[in-house]
Computed example of a mutant assay.
Amino acid sequence: MDINNKTRIHWSCRRGMRELDIAIMPFFENDYDGLSDGDKQTFVRLLAFEDPQLFRWLMNQATPEDAELERMIKMIQKKNAERRSLA
């Protein structure tokens, strides 16, 4: 998927699990534009995984073997935690 096709990426962010929508959509809407092209590619690559796997990673039930995916998961978690603390 092209990292500049925000419409398609936005659609891919919409998941079948509410918990994933709550984690992924705010990150995309608030932080995606500020990512480097490499991080955008990692984020798009992350979206290719199935919902159960993403859920396990985002809920700290498992860790991706790929270091870049693990870094992206931690970035999503950190940014979302920062937003919650400001609310």
Rank of each mutant, 00 (worst) to 15 (best):
M1S: 12
D2W: 06
D2G: 06
I3C: 05
I3K: 05
N5H: 00
K6A: 07
R8Q: 05
R8S: 04
I9C: 02
H10Y: 15
H10G: 11
S12P: 03
R14Y: 08
R14A: 08
R14D: 08
R15T: 01
G16H: 01
G16R: 01
G16W: 04
M17W: 07
R18A: 15
E19H: 07
D21F: 01
I22L: 14
I22A: 13
A23T: 10
P26T: 07
P26L: 08
F28S: 01
E29C: 05
Y32R: 00
D33E: 15
D33T: 11
D33H: 10
D33S: 13
L35M: 12
L35I: 06
G38K: 11
K40D: 02
Q41I: 02
Q41R: 09
T42E: 03
F43C: 00
F43V: 02
R45T: 14
L46D: 04
L46E: 02
A48V: 11
F49Q: 13
P52K: 12
P52W: 12
P52H: 12
Q53L: 14
Q53K: 13
F55L: 14
W57S: 00
M59K: 09
N60I: 03
Q61R: 10
Q61N: 06
T63I: 07
T63H: 07
T63W: 00
E65D: 13
E65S: 11
E65F: 08
D66V: 13
A67T: 11
A67N: 09
E68A: 11
E68V: 09
E68Q: 11
E68N: 11
L69E: 09
E70T: 06
E70S: 08
R71V: 02
R71Q: 07
M72W: 07
M72V: 05
I73Y: 01
I73H: 02
K74L: 05
M75C: 09
I76S: 02
Q77I: 03
K78M: 04
K79Y: 00
N80C: 03
N80R: 08
A81Q: 06
R83Y: 13
R84G: 12
S85Y: 15
S85H: 14
L86E: 15
L86C: 13
L86M: 15
